[in-house]
Design a protein around this nucleic acid. Structure first.
Lengths: 335, 335
DNA sequence: ATAGATGATGTAATCGGTTACATGACACAG
DNA sequence: CTGTGTCATGTAACCGATTACATCATCTAT
């Protein structure tokens, strides 16, 4: 920068003013500075700027090991919002355990203005926000709301209830649930919603881990049961897809013999045959919203202590497709 | 940091030494410093460190508007490699045009040690590397190699040839191509490979844009042709999936009436029915490799000017699935 | 003609670390 | 007892920007 100032025959202060558009500068000076910047291919040093202004226009995102389309949709939404506000996004993904998540939080402290932490482990989320110290953190852990913590959460319980109620409404009675890994808050909450909505029907639960392969395995277990279920609520779409494929391989028809509902509405859900009924969550929108709110927190933190500590809840919407067509009408269509 | 030094009754130099593990420190001092850090919840200021050391342990990734699974796989690989080296990843995606890409490059200069630019526009890639100045840039633009530029590229031409040759080998003769948008290097190269491999068969080309919807539209066009093709090579898997769905809706059987080959081998390819034959590219591995090489470039740039300017080429592998089962055997199986 | 306002620019302190070099304590050999 | 080497630690310059404040020139009003 000194070089630029020298070449433009001005002081560093003027260069700074021109580059940031602050304060007053004459057109002649401005032009000379810009020319010098051009000639010298000058690039302001980010660290130095961050040091003087104690801001860095960067927000961190810490994600668990997410599955394909959920991940990309989320990042797309976040990236869009960040770009709109001139912020950068530091992404660190594939964090499994609480320790791992914590390490990621630590390594980002001091280099971001705020963080968004998605963690399916409640403990991790708590620790993370503790460790973050005075830096704003937005939680998207799918767990229960905590007072004083900004958060965006999916109504996993309500979504599960909606899915099961839909199955009951379309005439299903023996409704099974392929759940996510125990200890994962989202998995637990969806399982609780399933149980709550059964309305007297017997619960049939098999374990999965949100992966397509686990859905396949779980479906195979269901088929081996003496009294076969006539419907399955899978805790996410990928497991539902795995289940659909297992049913196909076993010659079990969907939706005639067994109905399937997923959760998330990833793009693949609409592409399956039969197309998958699911609880839609607008993933990109959640990502966008998360970034918007975090930026709000960052700015609020600078001005006053009026913090936004609301817990926003996103309610999934039922999207009906072929996989839960009423058995009778399915037969009719099949003609 | 001054506070920490004071509390630990040492100088800032000792604090720095303890925190970075450099130089010699007595155990007693180390412990007192660590305690003070703990008590004060001290977090080193990233900008300041970056200012003194002129490094920031961050690499930037600029991506075009990628489709779901390709995107997440790529990031997964990159994130893994970056974490292994203690680097952070700044991601900026969804850049369509050359201008957009360029703006992203500009906004990252000065805050990353190096960049990976994926741009389907040759011009953009060139400009990007120019604008980056002395910062290392790894190109993954799918275009032709340029001397003196580190790059990793997919052998799009060879992959397309492989796909078409496979179709010919399985007895197909009227082979159509659903290409990506004109001006996109990958689309152009794959189309060229298609044309080169036709071996005398008449070219049948319809336009797409890599989206599933465009594949669907293109397939509809193909079906409307007086002499219907008996095979389709789609420039990527998503278009192939769109085509498969269009064929299904039209009652055209795959692979019996028409065979389909895609490109990429995204996870969904194996889940479709019929499962999609495709040219596999190990996306995560490419991402990982890209980061590894960029880090190599960054380190080399610090030590000497021995730059790694190699252009690595990744060759797609044919993965045969149902969608191109030989017509005769397909009929047989169907029996 | 001169005080005072206005507007452009320069000076220098500051942000929070890193690190070359200086200093001081201590042990040991001669 | 003194010279020398070793090890732990402190001092202060420096990285490259921002910005409060000082300065100076020019213009206006009286």
């Amino acid at each position: 920068m000194r070089d630029v100032a020298e070449r433009a025959q001005v002081s560093v202060a003027s260069v700074s003013r021109v580059l940031n558009g602050l304060g007053v500068t004459s057109d002649a000076t401005r032009q000379r500075v810009l020319d010098a910047v051009e000639d010298l291919r000058y690039v302001p040093h980010f660290g130095a700027r961050s040091l003087s202004t104690s801001k860095n226009d960067t927000i961190g995102v810490i994600l668990p090991d997410l599955f394909g389309e959920f991940f990309s949709e989320l990042i797309r939404g976040m990236d869009l919002a960040a770009r709109a506000h001139g912020k950068h996004l530091i992404v660190s993904s594939s964090h499994d355990g609480a320790d791992d998540t914590l390490a990621a939080v630590r390594s980002m402290r001091g280099r971001v203005d705020g963080m968004i932490v998605l963690s399916p482990h409640l403990g991790a989320a708590n620790l993370a926000s503790e460790f973050a110290g005075r830096m704003p953190v937005l939680l998207m852990n799918g767990g229960t709301a905590e007072a004083g913590r900004a958060a965006i959460m999916i109504d996993n319980h309500g979504g599960a209830v909606g899915a099961v109620e839909h199955l009951i409404a379309t005439g299903r009675r023996r409704i099974a649930h392929i759940r996510g890994a125990a200890g994962n808050i989202e998995a637990d909450t969806r399982a609780a919603g399933y149980a709550a909505a059964l309305d007297g029907h017997a619960p049939i639960i098999v374990e999965g881990d949100f992966s397509q392969a686990s859905g396949h395995r779980a479906a195979t277990q269901l088929l081996a049961m003496p009294e076969r279920p006539d419907a399955v609520f899978a805790a996410n779409d990928m497991m539902a897809v795995g289940a659909l494929l297992a049913f196909q391989e076993a010659g079990v028809r969907c939706p005639e013999d067994i109905a399937v509902v997923g959760f998330d509405d990833v793009p693949i859900a609409a592409l399956m045959r039969p197309a998958l009924t699911t609880m839609r969550v607008n993933i990109a929108e959640i990502g966008r919203r998360g970034v918007e709110r975090l930026i709000g927190l960052v700015q609020a933190g600078q001005h006053a202590d009026a913090q936004d500590t609301a817990c926003e809840i996103v309610r999934p919407i039922l999207v009906e497709r072929q996989s839960t067509a009423a058995a009778s009408s399915a037969r009719f269509n099949k003609g």
